[in-house]
Structures are given as C-alpha cells and as structure tokens.
Design a protein around this nucleic acid. Sequence first.
DNA 1: GATGAATGAGGCTTCATTCAT
DNA 2: TATGAATGAAGCCTCATTCAT
Lengths: 209, 209, 209, 209
Amino acid sequence: MPNKKVASSVKDQELIQLRRDQMIKGAVTLFIEKGFHRTTTREIAKASGFSIGTLYEYIRTKEDVLFLVVDSIYMRVKERMEALFDTETASISSLVDAVRSYFQLVDDMQDEVMVMYQEVKSLPKDAKEYVLQKEKGMVAMLERVIANSLPYTLSKEDVSLLANNIFVQGQMWSFRRWMLQKEFTLDTYIDRQVHYFLKSVQEVGNLQA
Amino acid sequence: MPNKKVASSVKDQELIQLRRDQMIKGAVTLFIEKGFHRTTTREIAKASGFSIGTLYEYIRTKEDVLFLVVDSIYMRVKERMEALFDTETASISSLVDAVRSYFQLVDDMQDEVMVMYQEVKSLPKDAKEYVLQKEKGMVAMLERVIANSLPYTLSKEDVSLLANNIFVQGQMWSFRRWMLQKEFTLDTYIDRQVHYFLKSVQEVGNLQA
Amino acid sequence: MPNKKVASSVKDQELIQLRRDQMIKGAVTLFIEKGFHRTTTREIAKASGFSIGTLYEYIRTKEDVLFLVVDSIYMRVKERMEALFDTETASISSLVDAVRSYFQLVDDMQDEVMVMYQEVKSLPKDAKEYVLQKEKGMVAMLERVIANSLPYTLSKEDVSLLANNIFVQGQMWSFRRWMLQKEFTLDTYIDRQVHYFLKSVQEVGNLQA
Amino acid sequence: MPNKKVASSVKDQELIQLRRDQMIKGAVTLFIEKGFHRTTTREIAKASGFSIGTLYEYIRTKEDVLFLVVDSIYMRVKERMEALFDTETASISSLVDAVRSYFQLVDDMQDEVMVMYQEVKSLPKDAKEYVLQKEKGMVAMLERVIANSLPYTLSKEDVSLLANNIFVQGQMWSFRRWMLQKEFTLDTYIDRQVHYFLKSVQEVGNLQA
DNA sequence: GATGAATGAGGCTTCATTCAT
DNA sequence: TATGAATGAAGCCTCATTCAT
C-alpha cells in the first residue's frame, strides 16, 4: 500500500502508511507556508507528531518527503477528477460540467495545487519525471472528455492544446490568485472562462442553428 | 542608473551597473540550472567573474541577487513588450500581431521566464510585492491592446481575463515545455492558440457577415 | 537546573548542565588566553570536547557562551563569598576575617576575575544588566559585613564606598598583577590593605582607648 | 614628532602627525561606543575624514590605531598629571590637592579612561608592555607626591600600595560609574575618598596633637 | 520501532588589507 | 599622497543525516 518508490527501514506496511500520512499532512502545511527549502526536517517531524529519528525510519532523504507530498496531492486530485469525468454521456453540457467541476476542485485544493506547482522542480530528476507522467495522465483525462464531448472531430494537437489550456486556467486560479481573486469570485471566474472556452470550440455551423 | 532598491558599498554608479550586469548574467544561468536555493553565493561570484568579496560589495544579501535577476528579466520582457504593443493602429490584425510577437518573445526568453516564474516566491515580502506590481503592468499592456483592438466593448473583467489567459499561455510555453514542445513547434503553437483566441473573441454577428 | 536564560534544543536538563559545564570549563581557559573576540566557536567546541554542531545544541549564539562563563564565575564567587560572610558574630575582627578571605578568594580565582572583569562589556545589553545586578549583590554582601561589624554607624554612602573600595582592591590584585604581584606576596598585600582599611575606619576615640 | 613605533609609508612628518590626530579623534569615539573589536577599519577611516586607503598610509595594522589611541590618552593624562603634581611644596594639603585634581581629571576624561582600561588587553604583546610602562610612570608620580607630602616615612611598598589605591579609585569612578555615579556626585565622591584616605595615612601621634 | 543527541560539511557574510589608478 | 574597488581567509551558524540507547 505505501509508496514503494520511497524506502523505509520499518517493515510493517500499515504502520508505514500511517506514519507517512501523518508526515504528509504535517509537511503540506509547512511547504505551503514556507516552501520546501525553508522547511527543516525537524519541523516536519514535529508537525508530524514524532521525532526526527522516527521520521528517518520512514524515508531516506528530505526529498522523499517532498515526493510523498507531491505524489499524494496528485493522487487526490486525480481521484477527484476521475470521479468527475467518468460520465458515460458525452455532450457539450457534460463537458461544461466537467470543466466547472475541475475549476471547483482546484479552488478547493488551492494550497495543494500551489505546492505541486512550485516545488516539483525541487524533486530529484527521476522523481520529477514520475510526477510529470502523473500530470500527463491528468491532462489526458481532460483530453478524453474534450474529444468525446464535441460533436465534431478535432486534431490530436488541438485537443491537447485545449486540455492544457483548461488545465492551466485551473491552476492559474491558484497561482495567480493575488490578481484574479481580486477581480473575480470563483463563480464569475468559472462563468467567464467557460464562456470563452465554449465560444472557442463552437462550430460556426452550430452557431447559426 | 543601477537599481537603488539594492544597496552597494561601491560609489561609482557605472561600475555598479557593470558589475551587476555580470552578476545577473552569471546568476541567471545558475538559477536556471539549479534554482536559487541550490546555488551558492560563491558559485554566483565565480560565474560573475569576481571574488566573493567583490560580490558583496555590490549587494547586501543573496536575496538581493535574486531580486536583481528577476527585476532585470521583468525589465527586459517589459521593454520588448512595449516595443511590440505601441502600435497606433488598433484592429484585430494588430492584436493578432501583438499576441504572436508576445509568444515569440516568451520563446526567446524561455529560461528567464522560467526563473521569473519559479523563484519569485523566494523573494522577501517587499521585493515580491514590487515584482508583482511589475507583472501587473505587463498584463495591463495586454489588456490595453485587447480593449483597443476589438470592434466592440468588453467588460473590464473580461478584458482582464483574456489578458491573463494570453499572458499565461505565453508562460506555459516555457514552463510546460516538457509537454508542449514535444507536440508543437513554436509556430504551430502560436497558430493554434491564436486561432482559438480569435474564435473566442469573435462576435457572432461578425461571423455571419 | 541549567541557566534558563540561554536556550537549548536539547531536552535533558542534566545533560544540558553537564555539557555546559564542559563548555564553560573549555571556554574560560580560552577567554583567559586570548579574550572572547579572538576565540572562535570552533575552538570553544574543541576545548569542550565536542563538535561545533553539538556546541550549538546547547546555546544559540557565541555570546551565550560568554554569558554562561561569566554567570558561572559570578555564581562561584558569590557562593564562596556567602560561605565566608554569614558569620553571626559581628566585630572588627570578623570584618577583617571576611576581607582577608575575600582577598584570598580573588587570588584563588584570578583568571576568572580577569575574564569577568574584561569581557562583561562584550555581552549583549540585557545580559550585561543581569550581570551587573549580580555584581551589585556581591558588593551588597560586603556592605552588610561592614555595616554590621563596625561599632558605630556609617552613612549608607560611606558603607557603599568602603565596600566598593574593598571589592575593587580585591579585583586589582588580579588585573594589576603585572604591577602588584611583583612587589607583594598575597599575604603582604592582604596585610597592608587590611592595615590601611582598618586605619581608615577606626574611630579616633577608640584609638585613644 | 609622530610616534615612531608605528610605521607609515608617508614621509612628511607633519602630515603624519596631522592625519594621526584625525585618526585618533575619530577612533576614540568609536572605541568608546562599540569597543575596539566591533569597530571596523572602514568606520575609523570614515570617522577620521579620509579613505580606507589613506588610513593605511599612516598605519600598518588595525592594532596600530588602538596603540595610537591608547598612547595618546596616556600622554594626555600624564601631561595633565604632571601639571598638577609638580608642586614644590610638599605637605598634607598639597597631597590632598593633588589627589582631588587627579579625581577631577579622571572625571573629565571618563570615556578615555574607559578605553585605556578596557582595550589595552587587545594590544599586541610588545605594545602592551610599552603601555604598561607608561602606566607605571603615572603611578610613580602619585608615589612621589605621597612620599614627599607625608611628615613621616613610609616603606616603599606602602607608598606603592597607596598610590595604586588612589590610582584605581580614580579609574573606578569611570569603570564603575553605573554604580558609583548613582550614589555620588563627583564632589561627594572625592570628598569621601579623600576623607578615608587621610584617615588611613594619619599618624596616631598627629591625631592626638 | 522510537528517540533525540551528536556530527560536520557547507552556507552566508564580514572585514582587514592590498594595489592599481 | 589619496582613493576606493578588489580580495579571500575566516567567522558564525544551520541542518540533513546517523546511531547508540
């Protein structure tokens, strides 16, 4: 059950899971507050509710903590996206619903998105690649919804572009909050983004109908 | 001429400018390679071509270097944007030209955009605010072009939203290059983004005409 | 038990006491040899028998070491003074005994007195004030002995003056040793100082008796 | 004219004297404020009214500045003491006058006495010895006054002891000002010290007369 | 398994001194 | 002679990691 990419000297798998959950919970808050580099392992241990020695029983390096945190965020986001997107019905309106839900999700996990967004670069190369694969997977989900919901066929590239745009517009809500959240409420933001998104994917023929 | 927000013990203003230019040049490369936190002051000094002692004649703290770097990038981007956008003619095509140029600019300064993007958070609070003001200024330039170039009036919020979207779509080309630059060339990326942007701002009436 | 004015990241109070004792012991020697400013933290660590990292587990700054050293010296001096002075009997001869003992004590702790004497000025303001209070306490002890032992009443100021004189004459033995200890042995020094002290507090009437 | 113990690369003797006077004047203030170790050579140069480069034209090391300062203070104190003490008349009352004047002098040069007092230890060994010789000279002046003014003969050691006591009681007024200057005005301090001093050197026989 | 004291490499910064102009 | 930019050794302190209990 616990992430096998991170080695632990403890054997008991359930315990590993438990301790790592504590760890992730403690670390996220810290990473949000002060960033990965300015957070010390001692602070992480304390926020997790155990000693520095114990912390190192469940990870090998500080970067492991970051990896666990980022990975857990990705998992949670992905999980929720999957719940939103697995509609059978494929239509413009279901597409709109999915996009709206995605924006709501991002709003809900603003801080986590921020961490995911800013600290991935601090991961070691291999962990970074692993994480980017996950992100690809998430974009792919958006791609699928888009491709399936439009009444006409778009090129693979166009689908990818639109999916990336939506994906990043979601993230923007978080990382440009200092600007956007002064001008928009979540609802108006969603409303206008969806509005322009729809216009950009409307077929001319449809419009006239 | 040199940035007065950063104190220097050297008097000669021209020399300050010169040394700081060396410093910025050296530091950008390092920050791109390994990020601000993993770069040491000694590495910065070396990359700048002088001793650690000399480095500290021109700044007070390591964060000053980051500030100088980020500020210089903002200045260069802004300068180039100003050159692109001050067209008298205001029309859809001039808008498209501006957007295209902006994307080209971002491509040209990919690494710098990346730094600007990822390390601003490491600045001390006041420097961060100063920098965000600069970013606001850049978005405002886009807003002006958009508002002036469309043959109809958009709400202030819509203009802002579209400007932010364009701005971030430019940055995306840099910070999501691992994904986008595998699927698109710069030209096709610009082409498709502009395509969808145009669709999203086209008036229905115009379309039918 | 350990001094609470200096923060430590170690929890175990006994260990703190132990390590700080090592630290004080090592540091005193160094401070005597080369003074506070010319002593490095690494030298202190080495002289204490542990690593620089460990040193900083028990203090926050180099000045903390100085404070611990000075405070410990004051405590030791005060302790010994208390042992000497709490005689019930109050008479000229008990006063003389106390003064003699005090001079002997100062001789015994010459180096420590020297440090106490020369480095207090390097303490941060609040620590300095705390230490001066302690010194006041010590002078007050002398004042009490003087006031109680003389067969007539002196003004508060005169008592204070005499106490300060004695106190400083003790310290002199240490900080003017380059001069005094060439001309006097401890015994002759005590003898002559006591002699003149007695003359200065003798009542004329008594003399004639 | 300028102190030959400190080397200078400048030839012009008058200029050396001039610059060093500036230097001493600037440095004393700084040493009083923050002590020798916490004062930087750049601060000294600035307070002296010239550049760091110029500073080093007139001295070899930072310690040279301290030496010049201390030496100058000693010279000034000695000069004034000589002026006070070279009375022909030798009597108890002339002794008292001399002592009073000395206390007044010390009060007048409190800060300088403090520096002299606290920073001598920071001098290199040979400079320190030179300076201690000077101090011996000053004590010797007091010894002479004492020996000549009393109507009976004291042992060499007793004279020395009394001279040292007076000398240090003067310095005390400066270095224990935090305590003494709360309880005494200069006049009352002098008054009481002289009072007790007189008692301690009065001959019993004289008293009865 | 849990603890937390111990370690020391390494980071940032200062500052006495030099030297070309 | 005067200047002040350049230098780099050296200082203080932090913190990821280990390991004995």
